[in-house]
Write a protein that binds this DNA or RNA. Structure first.
Length: 570
RNA sequence: CGGCGUGUAGCGCAGCCUGGUAGCGCACUUCCUUCGGGAGGAAGGGGUCGGAGGUUCGAAUCCUCUCACGCCGACCA
């Protein structure tokens, strides 16, 4: 393609509302433009990349035995009412009605539609297992769309749904999808990890997320330095570390009028942070001994809300108590709480249970106890895993220690079981002519998000550096002074034809621009390979080559260029 | 959905406090020079200052309402 025929809308300046690097570069490179919050138009250059990602996903899904379908974006309410999600979904689902006042929604996902299809089309166990996928636009009315296409309201997703007669068959397809996903992200040229994930409200036994590692990622993932254990931190189990030491201090009541936070306690009173306890008050469930429940976490640890709300004594979803509620129940404000003489139900994190000589609020405003010890000063409350794992924690599988990195969730596979097939009566006849409810699996890839994630992982101060597999063009062909030098023009045109004929996608910069502009634009849009044609080179019978990541140019003999590129791009 | 903030040319911004009829840089058009790392000069085009109402002789500027967008938080099969 010639740049003169391409809408190459590059920007020198960074649009002010773009926060993360991929969003900035996608705007600057002219890949996308915003239409409204969370809604983006893909420009020709961006769409090329999107299509490349799609093609790889499609190939690997086909190879893994899935069949492609295409379902409507607009879906009737009846299906969602049948699965029970019409009421569950909330404002995230955009609803509308047609001219006959029938309710519809923009599909945030397609479990209902596919289940409806398959219950009508598949009658026999002989037709199973089967796996169907589509690459389709989804709409989720995010509370807060941000980061460009990374977290847009309208986005492109590959979603697949598998149907089985039993769990063993589902396990098999699940494994096949796990492998297919690994191949897809490997082919895309991305540094990724598959991690254990929370199955969420949807239940099911097994779930993995695929994360592209990037410092701007919204998720934290933990993985062992000595095994292949990897999990979302929200899920990773925090094991108890060490044993409780014997008391060495007396418990004393200390005036701490200005210490409202753990940080204050550490700064003003010299308490080591790992000898302090944070007391968080949440609402209890019906089975709790009190209306409010106190959760004890070490000062330097973070409460894991997901773990907490899974405890029977705690209301789910988790709800923090307000200051008034706390004062009413405890008699002191949130800055002075602690387990000593606390009048409400209390649960301690595992690492809290092994603390000694620690400090915590005295449940009297402006006072803390120092030198507290379990059993001697107060009984040890029930113990549970309440906190997020931190770097250096032992790996839950017993091998090695945890490292924590940030990732962008680009894929998620999980086992649905019979949630939808049961609610929507999707069954088949088995060998004995008996009706059995189908078992389902579900597998998603955020196609448009992959594009942003790839940039997060592959860029420098000049712009994007596309992995070869998804670059909009493989080669940038830059003629120097073509509009003055007839030899350069002829040579470039010839090269363009040759390279194109050899099957390469070439972006030929035939604009009447200065060299600097061409270089800067090609680097910004991230074309991985660059060939420069100039008078100087023609005299020597060479052209210049530079890989996007290379430090400098190299001369390549004109006659062996094709051969050279064949090895470079192999 | 709560807190905060911002809306002035395609993009980035100034002007607003202290009302007097809109400006800078980039981009765009034409010409001259330059011509291998985002060139220099000259001349141009483009804005109902987010919208509505109000105060005033006069509103981008002050007041009220409203819409949009963004940041932080909460939320996220």
């Amino acid at each position: 393609m010639r740049t003169s025929k391409l809408l190459l809308s590059t920007l020198k300046e960074t649009p002010s509302d773009a926060e993360i690097i991929s969003h900035q570069l996608m705007l600057r490179a002219g890949m996308i433009r915003k239409l409204a919050a969370g809604l983006y138009t893909w420009l020709p250059l961006g769409l090329k990349v999107l299509h490349k990602v799609e093609a790889i996903v499609r190939e690997e899904m086909d190879k893994a035995g899935a069949q492609e379908v295409l379902m409507p974006v607009v879906q009737p309410a009846e299906l969602w009412q049948e699965s029970g999600r019409w009421d569950q979904m909330g404002a995230e689902m955009l609803r509308m009605h047609d001219r006959h006042s029938r309710d519809f929604c923009l599909g945030p996902t397609h479990e209902e539609v596919i289940t409806d299809l398959i219950r009508n089309e598949v009658q026999s166990y002989k037709q199973l297992p089967a796996n169907f996928y589509q690459i389709q636009t989804k709409f989720r009315d995010e509370r807060r769309p941000r980061f460009g296409v990374m977290r847009a309201r309208e986005f492109l997703m590959k979603d697949a749904y598998s149907f089985h007669t039993d769990q063993a068959s589902l396990d098999e397809t699940y494994e096949a999808m796990y492998q297919a996903y690994s191949r897809i992200f490997t082919r895309l040229g991305l540094d990724f990890r598959a991690v254990l994930a929370d199955t969420g409200a949807i239940g099911g036994s097994s779930s993995h997320e695929f994360h592209v590692l990037a410092s701007s990622g919204e998720d934290a993932i933990a993985f062992s330095d000595n095994s292949d254990y990897a999990a979302n931190v929200e899920l990773a189990e925090a094991l108890a570390v060490g044993e409780r030491a014997a008391p060495s201090q007396e418990m004393e009541l200390v005036d701490t009028p200005n210490a409202k936070t753990i940080a204050d306690l550490v700064e003003q009173h010299g308490q080591p942070i790992e000898k302090t306890i944070k007391t968080l008050i949440v609402h209890g469930s019906e089975v709790a001994e009190s209306k409010l429940v106190a959760l004890l976490v070490r000062g330097d640890h973070e409460l894991n809300e997901l773990k907490a709300e899974k405890l029977p004594a705690i209301e789910s979803p988790l709800r923090m108590a307000t200051e008034e509620e706390i004062r009413e129940a405890v008699g002191a404000g949130p800055g002075s709480l602690g387990p000593v003489k606390l009048p409400i139900h209390c649960i301690a994190d595992r690492s809290v249970a092994v603390m000694s000589d620690f400090s915590a609020g005295a449940n009297v405003d402006g006072k803390h106890y120092f030198g507290i010890n379990w059993e001697r000063d107060l009984p040890l409350p029930p113990v549970a895993d309440l906190r997020n794992v931190v770097e250096g924690d032992p790996s839950p599988d017993g091998h090695g220690h945890l490292e924590i990195k940030r990732g962008v969730e680009v894929g998620h596979i999980f086992q649905l079981g019979q949630k939808y097939s049961e609610a929507m009566s999707a069954g088949v006849l088995d060998e004995n002519g008996k009706n059995i409810t189908m078992t389902m699996g579900c597998y998603g890839i955020g196609v448009s998000r992959v594009v942003a994630a790839a940039i997060e992982q592959n860029h420098d101060d000049k712009g994007i550096i596309w992995p070869d597999a998804i670059a909009p063009f493989q080669i940038a062909l830059l003629p120097m002074n073509m509009h003055k030098s007839e030899r350069v023009r002829e040579e470039s045109e010839k090269l363009y034809e040759e390279l194109t004929a050899a099957g390469y996608s070439v972006l030929f910069d035939d604009r009447k621009e200065r060299a600097g502009v061409m270089f800067a634009d090609m680097e910004l849009i991230g074309i991985p390979h660059r060939v420069v044609v100039g008078d100087k080179g023609i005299d020597k019978g060479v052209v210049e080559y530079k890989g996007r990541r290379d430090e400098s140019n190299q001369d390549v003999a004109r006659d062996s260029l094709l051969e050279f590129l064949n090895t470079k791009l192999a």
